[in-house]
């Protein structure tokens, strides 16, 4: 019993940490695709860990089945949305910030900055600004 309690605590802490990391990544990373990566990957694992932590804490009852269903839904829905969003953004003309000119040659930092600023300017009607 005590071991299950410990396990639940560990799951909750780890899940909370992962979700928090994902949010920091969502806020700090330079362009859309990296943000997508940060949000989706950590979120899927963090969500599952948090829910498993709660499941271990409640014990076996009807809610456990529903929580397993919830894990299934989130485990399927999150990657699907990520895929669709990535595809839509690629079609919609969003370019990665660190685009290389050729596979062999890395772009200089100033280049990537220019590309990024161009991308910001093409988006009209947006009141936000690029993070530093």
């Amino acid at each position: 019993m005590i071991i299950i309690g410990w396990l639940s605590d560990v799951c909750l802490l780890l899940g909370g940490f992962l979700v928090l990391t994902g949010a920091v990544g969502l806020l700090r990373l330079p362009d859309f695709f990296t943000r997508l990566h940060a949000a989706s990957v950590t979120e899927t694992l963090g969500a599952v860990l948090l829910i498993i932590g709660i499941m271990l804490d409640t014990g076996l009852m009807l809610d456990t089945a529903k929580l397993i269903l919830l894990i299934c839904v989130m485990f399927i829905a999150n990657p699907t949305i990520t895929h669709g969003l990535c595809r839509a953004a690629a079609h919609g003309g969003i370019k990665p910030a660190m685009e290389t000119k050729s596979p062999m040659q890395n772009s200089t930092p100033s280049d990537s900055k220019n590309i990024y600023e161009n991308q910001i300017q093409t988006e009209t009607g947006v009141s936000g600004k690029a993070p530093k």
């Binding site: 839904v73 399927i76 829905a77 699907t80 895929h83 669709g84």
Partner: peptide, 10 residues
Amino acid sequence: LILWVVVKPM
């Protein structure tokens, strides 16, 4: 295709 497969059971 991915959406089609995922959405049906959903």
